[in-house]
Write a protein that binds this DNA or RNA. Structure first.
Lengths: 192, 192, 192, 192
DNA sequence: CATGAATGAGTGTTCATTCAT
DNA sequence: GATGAATGAACACTCATTCAT
């Protein structure tokens, strides 16, 4: 792993555990096992380190999220694998990094930057999740639903899982949760 | 409005716009039109002001959320009114205060406090939303679904709406959004 | 007791226990059982309250110090009674207020004020103690010693007693201490 | 001189001149010619800086106090040299730091800390001064006097000298003062 | 290129003092 | 005159960032 990734990996851990404002550059350096000054050779400043770390994490997250999913998978299988993969990542990163993402808007930025960031980040996030629904719709599996909305449902559920983990709960049966989410998303809640 | 509410109202605006760490006590005082020192006559410290403001907002939020909803409303009508009310509150508070809530865990607290808070807050939040699904289930309107999960779906959708507003989008047609959400939650996404 | 003395009495207790800078005007008011604002009806400000309290205490202290001492007393008897009276006052005020006196110079004042105060206060203090030695010298009881110096010896001894009390020690045998001090001052320490 | 001593030296000057509570960390930094933040690299906080400075000063003070004193010196010579050394230190430090010492108990501490400190500090101080009397007693030079009491006499006299300096007086003739103090302590004040 | 000692701008909080009641 | 809610100046301390080594 190159130095820059080493730093982002350390930063990910610390940011995720403490949030942006409670994370000290020195602690990141300590966790990375390097000197404080070295951070500034790779990143302009704290905000830059945070931003790059988040996008680096997201890239990895979305790649991992699609692990094992193949083109032909039904929407059911796709979501099911999403959940399993998500829980897997949660356990690996040992933290609910997703929670940090909300921090994004709380970093001191100008209104314009916040706006721009949200545009980019939210679009990025939602569109990534929407993708699967759009594909399924194209395959004719789905009714004419609002795919973005479905993405938000899914994100809400994943957030709920993350929060449970954050509170210290152990995910005993990922398969069951995956089934419940998929079932509810697919068939709705009303009795026939 | 008594002084304490005046302060919390100002705090709500500022916290929601800037997040906990970027909010200066002085600014809250300025917005409230009072002196900085006066804040400390009503709240122990910044964190206390934040905590009380959040819970005060939540209480009002949940009361407003149930506005117009009557006992006999079907689950469809209940959710529909939820959405409408939520959008209404969003516009009134002019901020997406819900986003601040995530800040909660990011304020410097001991692990134990974070844990305790999350237990209390998340349970509070989820259970409030779950309630309507539990009731509907009791009335026989729903399949044997996981009501907490449904709550997370709904929260995800509401969060999505909030984020849109945060990004500056205007909610053109609340009714349509309400219908979409309710429809998707009720009937799922698969084509029968 | 008139209001002003009531206040000074309360101030004495609090200043003596906590020192000037750790004493809050509100606490003095509380102890005096009056409102905070009332203090400012009797004293210009905190410093004025402190100054007046100190001089008021000193006046009482020096009066009490000479309790029971009569014109004809020998220097031995005079010092002996001084010690006894000093210990008595210490127990009554329950604090070693003398320690506060050193605080005088530590209050924020201009160089000139500090100078002026010290001139007045130290002169006052030392001359009061010196007086007895001067009288005794006049009566021919003493050698041609430096009376101010003798006063400092005595003050040092009294300070030592006060400190013992401050540390929590109980003065078991005032008479013995009084005898030791007087003896040492009178006859010196060398073996004839 | 290493950085830490440089800081304590500056702190000594400022604390001695203004007292604990009127001394700003920034001023100490200014006097030391360093940045405010640097102080915190060497000391935990203001109180820690004060405590360490006091004990550092005391160590140096007591070493200097015994300058030139040799084992065989009579009690007279020992005290004489004490006074001369004390005046010498006073002039070198240009401040009456001894006055600061009284501040010790006035810094905000818990009752327990004050107690513990006094125990340690006073014992330290008095026992250091007592030492010379104890030794002289062992050599048979002295009557069976209370050595602690003699120490308090001496401390009182030194305090008196310090106060004179504080008030701006110049010590014209240290030798004379030393003689007077020693004489009075040795032979007492009563005429044969 | 790496380091970490040094920096100083920035902010939460205290408390003497004021003044409307 | 008495009150105590309101005020805001003042200060200890933090931590992102720099730069000499």
């Amino acid at each position: 792993m190159e130095k820059k990734e080493l730093i982002m990996s350390a930063a990910l851990d610390v940011f995720a555990e403490k949030g942006y404002h409670n994370t000290k550059m020195e602690e990141i350096a300590d966790v990375a096992g390097i000197g404080k000054g070295t951070l500034y050779g790779h990143f302009t400043n704290k905000q830059d380190l945070f931003d790059q770390t988040v996008f680096w994490f997201l890239d990895n997250y979305f790649i991992s999220l699609e692990h094992n999913i193949i083109e032909d998978d039904s929407i059911y299988d796709t979501i099911y694998k999403f959940i399993i993969n998500h829980i897997d990542i949660l356990e690996k990163t040992k933290t609910s990094f997703l929670n940090v993402l909300t921090d994004f808007s709380n970093i001191k930025r100008s209104k314009e930057e916040i706006f721009e960031f949200h545009q980019e980040f939210l679009f990025n996030k939602v569109s990534r999740y929407s993708k699967i629904f759009i594909k399924a719709k194209e395959r004719g599996e789905l009714r004419n639903i609002n795919t973005e909305l479905a993405a938000h449902f899914l994100i809400g559920a994943l957030k709920g899982i993350s929060e449970s983990v954050l509170v210290g709960e152990k995910i005993e049966d990922p398969a069951k949760i995956a089934e419940e989410i998929t079932d509810l998303l697919c068939y709705g809640m009303v009795s026939n």
